[in-house]
């Protein structure tokens, strides 16, 4: 069985949802990891969940980056076959920790936005998207105030060149333009990975799209991809 570890910072609030998605929905092993924890090597996948770590005071993710567990996640991410998955606030923390390039600005609307969005899968050869087809459209909700991805031009060019842009906001037909961009993200970016493809950050919440009753099962594509990838590498 795949071992998921879900990090809990003071202020994390999607930790239990991510646990549910991995444990109850995917039927895998899952445990919570306290933010002061040192031993995380036993896990195959570390999820940094959404929420408001340290109240998002100062800047979203800025303080969580200094938690003890983050040093260990840096080392963890450098190892073979280990995956780090940041969702929403988790993505913000990965950016602040420089595990992924760029930064988050306040949404162009200046408001918190919670709603379903459509994402186009730009790269399906990552451990997080292998069960998706290329250009598949996933219906997954967002819920954030600082999800307006920004990086300088050089970084963007390199992200595109290296196929690190994994998800982009689109409409239900796959059109990508300003009108399908909910928060002002550069290049409609909803999720990116590192060059090695084992660290992924995304603003939308796949753990909220796991059953028909909740309105979509598209989040399961991502959790299934992760699970299958780890199983193969075990």
């Amino acid at each position: 069985m795949v071992k998921y570890g879900v990090v809990v910072f003071p202020g994390s609030n999607c930790d239990r949802d991510c646990f549910w998605a991995a444990h109850d929905m995917m039927g895998q092993k899952a445990e919570f990891i306290w933010h002061e924890s040192k031993s995380i090597d036993k896990y195959d996948v570390i999820i940094i969940p959404g929420g408001f770590s340290y109240g998002d005071y100062l800047r979203a993710g800025a303080i969580a980056r200094f938690a003890r567990v983050m040093d260990n996640i840096h080392t963890f991410a450098g190892k073979r076959n280990k995956l780090v998955f940041g969702i929403c606030n988790g993505f913000q923390i990965l950016l602040e920790s420089q595990l992924l390039p760029g930064a988050m600005l306040t949404n162009k609307t200046l408001k918190f936005i919670c709603k379903y969005t459509n994402l186009q899968v730009e790269n399906n050869s990552t451990p997080f998207t292998s069960e998706c087809s290329r250009e598949q459209i996933l219906r997954i909700p967002i819920a954030h105030q600082e999800g307006n991805y920004y990086c300088d031009e050089k970084t963007l060019n390199s992200l595109v060149k290296n196929d690190q842009v994994v998800f982009r906001y689109c409409d239900e037909k796959g059109n990508i333009d300003d009108s399908t961009n909910p928060n002002g993200s550069l290049y409609n970016i909803a999720g990116i990975c590192n060059k090695r493809r084992n660290v992924l950050g995304m603003m939308p919440h796949p753990e909220r799209a796991m059953t028909e009753r909740l309105g979509s099962t598209d989040g399961a594509f991502i959790f299934r991809s992760i699970t299958e990838y780890v199983k193969k590498s075990l």
Binding site: K111, I113, P141, R208, L214
Partner: peptide, 26 residues
């Protein structure tokens, strides 16, 4: 839409409906 109405993954019927329905897992 300014309220996070989906956290805890149990919101079955969204705001703007007659009543909200919250799933209780297990």
């Amino acid at each position: 839409e300014q309220y996070d109405h989906m956290v805890q993954t149990a919101t079955v019927t969204l705001p703007g409906s007659d009543a909200a329905v919250i799933d209780v897992k297990n």
